[in-house]
């Protein structure tokens, strides 16, 4: 899947919202950490959804709060990783 910002935003918001009624109101700017929406189950699912769909690979030190605070932050992180030269 190509990773343009708009498409990525729509995909990740839909992915989070589809997890149940508690997540239905999640938006791009919802603070997933402060609202307590981001638990380890959602985090792992989100990481592997991104890995499968966009061909990225997360390292444990990238499980950084600044990369997952909001969906917008995650989108920015994914785009940054995609544009970085692969080692």
């Amino acid at each position: 899947m190509t990773a343009d910002r708009k498409g990525l935003e729509v995909d990740l918001v839909h992915f989070v919202q589809s997890r149940g009624t508690r997540y239905a109101k999640a938006t791009l700017q919802t603070d997933l950490l402060e609202t307590g929406l981001l638990d380890s189950l959602l985090l792992m699912d989100l990481i592997f959804h991104i890995e499968d769909a966009y061909g990225l690979r997360f390292d444990s030190d990238q499980v950084n709060p600044s990369n997952f605070r909001t969906i917008e932050d995650t989108v920015s992180f994914v785009l940054k990783q995609k544009s970085a030269p692969q080692v």
Partner: peptide, 14 residues
Amino acid sequence: QERNRGGRILVTAA
């Protein structure tokens, strides 16, 4: 929440 504001790794209740 405070640790996660400036931390390098996401920490949880676990």
